[in-house]
Simulated scan of single mutants.
Amino acid sequence: MTDTHSEAQLTLAELLKDFSLEVTGKEQEKLADAADHIPQGTRVNVTYLGNEDRASRVGTAASARRLGFTPVPHISARLVDSETELRDFLSDLGEADAAHSVFVIAGDPPAPHGPYSDALAVIDTGLFAGHGVEDVSISGYPEGHPSISAAKLWDALEDKIRSLERQGIPTSITTQFSFDADRVLDWIAEVRRRGFDLPIRIGVPGPAGVRRLVRFASRFGIASSAGIVKKYGFSLTNLLGTAGPDRFLADITEGYSREVHGDLRVHFYTFGDIEATSRWVEESLAVHR
């Protein structure tokens, strides 16, 4: 990675400003319980998982809006059964005042359930403008993807950005969570080198049980166990504690260059513990302001 220590112009408080959170469609109550620790207007991503239904996804997005947050419902392309289902979902979100911002991903199934094989296929439908969507987030993979080559990932990223540009829809990137700050910063520098100056939200694991972190890292092909140990400084033989994002974010701020990396924010994957993550951010901001 380029040595940027002398150019670092980013404090933790600046990095955490306008952070976002991710919750599942089944976590309305948890979001409400944590609401006092989350700034008004915070972007709250709502997942689109196979074990959720449309009512729970829309309900949680609507709840986020009522609580004073900005809902960002996910659309998982391969889980959408039909164009009718996509239209109905967007319509329901619109009725709940929760369609202004969405996050589009390909999704986990190896084969699509319907006509959409990837996020670009959903974006290219042109349905967003007619349903009140004002900005679209897309995914980024600083540590790669277990089943997609790096070249294809870059092509897909560029195709999605270009399609949204043609439609006049502002976009941003939210990255998969990582434990390797160097790889994240190098990946962001490459995004900028390719001419894209859109906002990037760095995916970060919130404070979560170590066992849970390891399980999710393995699921998404992110960081070997050795890499997790190195970055988080704990022993995999003692999985009883928690690991926080402190060290990772410190590495990001240390290696950051405004000229090289541009507009960066943080997106927290809460792994079912919204309140722990919200309290961690609240406390960190109080200390580092």
Rank of each mutant, 00 (worst) to 15 (best):
T2K: 09
T2P: 14
L10G: 06
T11P: 13
T11V: 09
K17E: 15
K30Q: 14
T42C: 07
R43P: 00
V46M: 06
T47S: 10
L49A: 13
G59A: 07
T60P: 07
A61P: 05
S63E: 14
A64Y: 09
A64Q: 11
G68L: 10
G68E: 10
F69P: 01
F69D: 13
V72A: 13
S76T: 13
S76F: 01
A77S: 08
D81R: 15
E83Y: 05
T84M: 07
R87H: 10
R87C: 14
S91F: 08
E95K: 14
F103G: 00
H113A: 13
A119K: 04
V122K: 05
G126D: 10
G126R: 07
F128Y: 08
F128A: 01
G130K: 02
G132W: 02
V133A: 05
D135H: 14
S137D: 06
I138R: 06
S139M: 07
G140W: 04
G140N: 07
H145R: 11
S149G: 15
A156N: 15
D159V: 10
K160H: 03
R162K: 13
R162N: 03
R162F: 08
E165H: 05
G168W: 03
I169K: 04
I169S: 02
T171H: 13
S172C: 11
I173H: 12
T174R: 05
S178R: 03
D180A: 09
A181D: 03
D182M: 11
D186M: 08
D186L: 10
I188T: 12
R194C: 01
P199N: 05
R201G: 10
P205E: 00
G206E: 02
P207K: 12
V210P: 00
V214A: 11
A223S: 15
S224D: 11
S224T: 15
G227C: 04
K230V: 12
S235P: 08
T237Y: 09
L240K: 12
L240F: 09
G241E: 02
D246R: 03
R247W: 00
D251K: 13
I252Y: 09
I252F: 12
S257V: 10
H261G: 01
D263M: 01
R265L: 05
V266Q: 07
V266P: 09
F271R: 00
D273V: 09
A276G: 14
E282Y: 15
S284T: 15
L285H: 11
A286E: 13
A286K: 11
H288Q: 12
